[in-house]
């Protein structure tokens, strides 16, 4: 068995609202290996962000982790006391959020916001922390770094703010970086710059990254391995090339079909997945994707399939040895 940075097992998280229990995550397991970029992909509401926020116990009001474990460097993050966990956050594990507009405190200078993260975990002077902040700003390529420390978030563009967020996340050389849709709120050109920066930093600093996104283009570009989430469950997990070459789950196939491919000159039409994601207040007993699946079988509605396979795993009854053979990839081209 290979060494892992983070090992999540059977994580289940629910949100308790006035209308009932929303089962956002329903038993997710995965490993993050050192120095790899793991992509978490899925539609909004698939549970990808909640999974990561659960691991760090940063859920918003109403969210509760019901079961599971998250082993990081030998300790279970989910049973660690709040104090010890906060020693890890921002130190061994850095986080970048989706919206750089709202994730920075508008009333504090960006320098202060970077420095407080350093000062929390390192016993150094403010001057040293400032020097480190300048270093970080240079690392994330913010021009005239030293001068910009005194600026407030509203004086930055979206892309620059996200660079600040990355600087905060990297402040203490984390072993693991969780990037929750880091480029979704940005312009397309800025998206590419930030992604390139992330990939470059990951390789230089040798950290592991969990990249959450709904954008398969991003997945293809930077990740090593992919976890496809749907309805709070892992639907498929595979090395990125394998996933794109031979998707094992109709949902993944559907996702690929909904992505434009400029290299493709066959004038293929984009195929949206019909229907809408399951109601997580009362998730269906069988495969959550079955109601939208072109290959749905009686069994799919009755019972949730397990993850079939090793390395490349798919949660689909079609992978069962007895199942009728369907050419899933054929559907994409059709």
């Amino acid at each position: 068995m290979t060494q892992t940075v983070l090992s999540v097992r059977d994580l289940a998280t629910s949100f308790f609202t006035r209308r009932g229990e929303v089962q956002a995550v329903r038993g997710v397991s995965f490993d993050v290996r050192p120095g790899e970029i793991l992509g978490l992909v899925g539609e909004s509401g698939s549970g990808k962000s909640i999974t990561c926020m659960s691991v760090l116990r940063l859920l918003k009001t109403g969210g509760r982790i019901k079961s599971g474990s998250a082993n990081f460097e030998g300790t279970d993050l989910l049973s660690l006391d709040e104090n010890a966990l906060s020693d890890l956050r921002g130190n061994r594990i850095g986080v970048i959020f989706q919206d750089p507009m709202t994730s920075l405190n508008p009333t504090l200078t960006v320098g202060e916001q970077v420095m407080e993260a350093i000062l929390r975990h390192r016993s150094i002077s403010r001057a040293q922390a400032r020097a480190r902040a300048v270093e970080l700003f240079e690392l994330v390529r913010i021009p005239s770094a030293a001068a910009r420390l005194k600026s407030y978030p509203h004086e930055f563009s979206g892309g620059m703010r996200q660079r600040v967020m990355i600087a905060i996340a990297l402040a203490c050389d984390p072993k693991l970086l969780i990037a929750d849709e880091p480029t979704t709120a940005l312009d397309v050109t800025i998206q590419r710059q930030i992604l390139a920066l992330l990939k470059d930093l990951q390789q230089r600093l040798g950290m592991a990254v969990i990249l959450i996104t709904h954008d398969l283009g991003v997945i293809a570009e930077v990740t090593d391995r992919v976890l496809v989430l749907y309805g709070g469950l892992v639907m498929e997990t595979a090395p990125v090339r394998e996933l794109f070459a031979a998707p094992g789950h109709p949902y993944t196939v559907g996702l690929l079909g909904a992505v434009p491919d400029l290299r493709d000159d066959t004038h293929r039409r984009l195929t949206p997945i019909p229907g809408s994601p399951p109601n997580m207040l009362a998730p269906p007993p069988g495969c959550p994707f079955a109601p939208r699946c072109p290959h749905a079988m009686t069994r799919c509605l009755a019972e949730l399939p397990p993850l079939f396979g090793e390395g490349h795993q798919s949660r689909c009854w079609l992978q069962h040895p007895d199942a009728p053979k369907v050419d899933a990839v054929h559907e994409v081209a059709a």
Binding site: A290, M297, R299, C300, D322
Partner: peptide
């Protein structure tokens, strides 16, 4: 792995599985 009734493999007609 053979404990599954064959009729369980029957394809569900499109739209039939859509919940109310």
């Amino acid at each position: 792995m053979t404990d599954i009734a064959p009729d369980m493999w029957a394809k569900v007609p499109a739209g039939a599985a859509v919940p109310p």
